[in-house]
């Protein structure tokens, strides 16, 4: 309660109440949901599931960067780490899909808590370097330990039966499983951003010394948002391992950490819908430009450079500025 009143004092008066979803956002979410319900009948469902997993991943990353103001360069550790645990759970321990995803997510949460507790001891660019270094440690672990299968990864993970009842062998039924997880995850992230907790985060991002002087335990908030972000990144990674029936080194590699930064940057950091658009954009680009081989990497590098130099607001950021509403 105390935190709520304090944080309202921090809020500029002209902003509308953050409690309850604005009509515009409600409409967008409903349209998006309607679109996603028919999508698997229009495009290849596995492609659509990949987009949704990355959308959740980018949204989770955006919670940390866009709303917490912390640039982590090691989010692949939670995404990939969770995908390994979920794959192991489904394949070796014989877990049902929802339990496999849950165990991967939990593992990411614990990993995020530990790495976050160490990383928030440094700020700014040091923070980015520290998170990157720890992620590399996770990468080496995945490369060297036995259960992860080294270069091969964990392959042919069974899709299993949801709650032990509903078979997910079929792409369409798996699609709706993934839809519930990712859409639910994104709604939860929305709720976190617009909660009193989210408002305190905003205050810390805008003016950390002032937030400290108002009596907030800034480091606790940072650790909390780091852990939450890692958890949702893990949820995305664990789900992805069920879709592709594979956990591999690609998911823990530093280039994956870079990709999620790019998705968030292009879509618009600090916006609700930006990361989703950015993820859809990048995954589609990788998909449709796959014939160009390694050029895709170079194009992504240029997208990074151009995005930083000329397009820092991102796609949704620009739209939000034009229609003068937060998106």
């Amino acid at each position: 309660m105390m935190a709520l009143t304090k944080n309202q004092a921090l809020e500029p008066a002209k902003q509308p109440s953050s409690i309850g979803m604005p009509l515009l956002h409600k409409v967008i979410f409903l349209v998006l949901l309607a679109f996603l319900l028919v999508l698997p009948f229009m495009v290849y469902p596995v492609f659509a599931m990949k987009v949704m997993c990355f959308a959740l991943f980018a949204a989770a990353f955006n919670l940390l960067l866009g709303f917490g103001g912390l640039l982590s360069f090691g989010h692949a550790a939670y995404f990939g780490g969770a995908s390994y645990i979920a794959a192991q759970a489904a394949k070796v321990w014989g877990f049902t899909p929802e339990l496999a995803v849950l165990s991967g997510t939990l593992a990411a949460a614990v990993l995020g808590l530990v790495i976050g507790a160490l990383s928030i001891r440094r700020q700014g660019i040091y923070f980015a370097m520290v998170t990157l270094a720890f992620a590399q440690m996770v990468y080496f672990f995945a490369l060297q330990s036995d259960f992860t299968g080294g270069e091969d990864g964990i392959q042919s993970v069974p899709r299993g039966d949801l709650f032990g009842l509903v078979s997910l062998q079929d792409n369409i039924s798996l699609y709706f499983f993934v839809l519930v997880i990712t859409f639910g995850g994104i709604l939860m992230l929305y709720r976190i951003v617009h909660s009193p907790f989210g408002q305190v985060l905003k205050a810390i991002r805008e003016n950390e010394p002032r937030a400290i002087s108002l009596g907030y335990q800034v480091n606790r908030y940072k650790l909390m948002v780091f852990t939450l972000s890692a958890t949702f990144a893990g949820l995305a990674g664990a789900t992805k391992s069920q879709v592709f029936q594979l956990a591999s080194l690609t998911d823990v590699h530093w280039s994956m950490s870079g990709e999620v930064v790019l998705m968030t940057l292009l879509g618009g950091m600090g916006t609700i819908f930006g990361p989703l658009v950015g993820a859809a954009f990048i995954v589609s680009m990788q998909n449709y430009l796959a014939t160009f081989g390694a050029w895709v990497t170079i194009i992504q590098g240029f997208a990074f450079v151009i995005g930083v130099l000329l397009f820092r607001e991102g796609i949704i950021g620009v739209i939000a500025r034009i229609i003068k509403r937060p998106l």
Partner: peptide, 28 residues
């Protein structure tokens, strides 16, 4: 030089992009 007035993190992101381009180029 266009980024000095902004948050220093943009410099990190820009040089990351450059690293990706260079690496992709030589790999190709």
């Amino acid at each position: 030089s266009r980024l000095y007035k902004l948050d220093h993190l943009y410099g990190l992101l820009l040089t990351f992009g450059v690293a990706v381009i260079l690496q992709g180029f030589f790999r190709n």
